[in-house]
Nucleic acid binder design. Sequence first.
DNA 1: CTGAAAGCGCTTACAG
DNA 2: CTGAAAGCGCTTACAG
Lengths: 353, 353
Amino acid sequence: MPKKEEQLSGVKEIAMRANVSIGTVDRVLHNRNGVSPKTREKVKAIIKELDYQPNLLARRLASKKVIHIATLIPLVSKDTSYWSLPLQGIMRAEEEIKRYNIEVDKYFFDQDDKDSFVSQTRKTLRKKPDGVLLSPDFIEESVAFTNKCNQLGIPYVFIDSDIEAQNRLSYIGPDLYDSGYLVANLVSYVLRGREAVLVLNISQRTYKHHHLLKKEEGFRNYFKDNAIRKKIEKIDIRKGDNLSIEKEITSVLSRNKDIRLVFVTNSRVFIVAKCLKKLKKKLILIGFDFIEENIKALTEGDIDFLICQKPGEQAYKGIMSLYQHIVLNRQVDRMQFMPIDIITKENYQFYKN
Amino acid sequence: MPKKEEQLSGVKEIAMRANVSIGTVDRVLHNRNGVSPKTREKVKAIIKELDYQPNLLARRLASKKVIHIATLIPLVSKDTSYWSLPLQGIMRAEEEIKRYNIEVDKYFFDQDDKDSFVSQTRKTLRKKPDGVLLSPDFIEESVAFTNKCNQLGIPYVFIDSDIEAQNRLSYIGPDLYDSGYLVANLVSYVLRGREAVLVLNISQRTYKHHHLLKKEEGFRNYFKDNAIRKKIEKIDIRKGDNLSIEKEITSVLSRNKDIRLVFVTNSRVFIVAKCLKKLKKKLILIGFDFIEENIKALTEGDIDFLICQKPGEQAYKGIMSLYQHIVLNRQVDRMQFMPIDIITKENYQFYKN
DNA sequence: CTGAAAGCGCTTACAG
DNA sequence: CTGAAAGCGCTTACAG
């Protein structure tokens, strides 16, 4: 055999062996029509025989097709700036991959408005994206949405919180149970004897509660697992405004003089910090998330511990995982738990979100 | 301005703006010589101005340079087939990336022969690889080796066990402390009252002990953290042959009639299983690693629990992380802990290594 | 239904 | 010191 033929590889080799052009090979490879059954079979056989693996780098380079990744996360709310962090992560990833013809289409919904979520999922689907990054805030509606994604063969990744039993590509975020568990561990170091804890779930929505409850479960189970008896007072606060919260807290504190520590199960801890300050109650305060308002309260000594989970990283990794999967056909870990970081006044400056 | 110029991007755009050829742009981009200082500066300025980001896919495709990744892991020893698992992972990764002009050069050392390790590190360095995957079995020698890698700017990844404070790209493997902790948790469920535990560190080498001790530390601390009083008998066995082990075990068991469970801190648990069988002692036996010999003992009821850490995955991820970093300039997590899996007779068939 | 050519954004010889 | 051309392994029009 002449050497030249020997050297060929990829589509060229297939084309040569099948006595067709590489254009035809490409058509077979992508199941496009315009190939006679006979040629198709012949080419297919050779592809199989050679165990041909496409060069995905070349494929992406040559293709004019733009890949669309849709992101669906909450609007930055008036209450907390939390969601600006994931957004930054998304934009960092976008910056990195846009040169490979990947476009990121960003959709936002109102955390307190289920309808806005639904309408944004519709909008997303209409664009037929190649992948979706989603914060599955509204559970039922998220399930409905991801079911449609399954049907359409659109891969999707969850960040921030997880919905089990869904056919997702990956979940990237905290292990909610574990983070509650960690807080309990912290609490067990800080509190002594009969000092009690107040757990505050502040959320307007019961759906959202699902996630908060997981944290609470981890929190409670720590004490169970370790056979520690600890009085845990707990209230769910539906209204997020300062006044309502103040009222509730005043009431519960006056009823329970033994409370020495307050654990707020989400990022709204800074509101509680304000209330406690106003009430002149000096309690130990633990909450979640590295957002501006919380950092401020932390530096002023009004919050003692913040539990953080690199929300920017979560979103960044989410986009990159989708990119890897869609473009490079890489397998992705179904669970990508973020480290659970404890931030205090002393170390917050070094925290990289 | 004519539209055509507007459309350009990448090296072409730079070339056009600088009034040079793309060849010259390439020379500047890679700091190769053969460019006059004046042109170089001009081109550099434009690169900066445009904030040019190279298309790494195109770069890899066009480059004829083969990228060499070296792997340095133990030979499959006569005692245990453990290291055949990481080797499989390496080959799986190799299979996947060889089409992108990545070559994996495999070096092996004898786990019981420090000199072989040193000579293999020398051999590795002589080839000037672009990245190294390493099981840092011999600690001092690994430090010496990675110091040289640092000097030469060769990135390296650890699998199986970690050396802290090294400038490594990533560690991929178990959290040794945590896995000991997990075993202790298991033990606390299984044992009652005054029943005692025997911990066995079986290793010919004290260096290796470093890692085993971490597991032991996690094991012990579980009981401390949870204020559980538990008698823990512990022996270090230097000689790995059946007879020595048998002798030691017989002796310790006769001295401690209360021992009801044996925890072997590495994969040599199947040897202990044999001994116990021979001695007709029916104790609960826990050990590490999904290797053939252990699975056999597990199915025959001679081992009760195996703790596994997907050694194949570790190696696969190690290679892929290096590839991502070297070729695609992707940042890599400094820690990639594997899940700690508990394998029993009931679930071992479903385990994917 | 099929092929030949151009081009994706780079790198690599080669020629001057 | 510099440029023009070929080519990496694919995809994409276009022509027939």
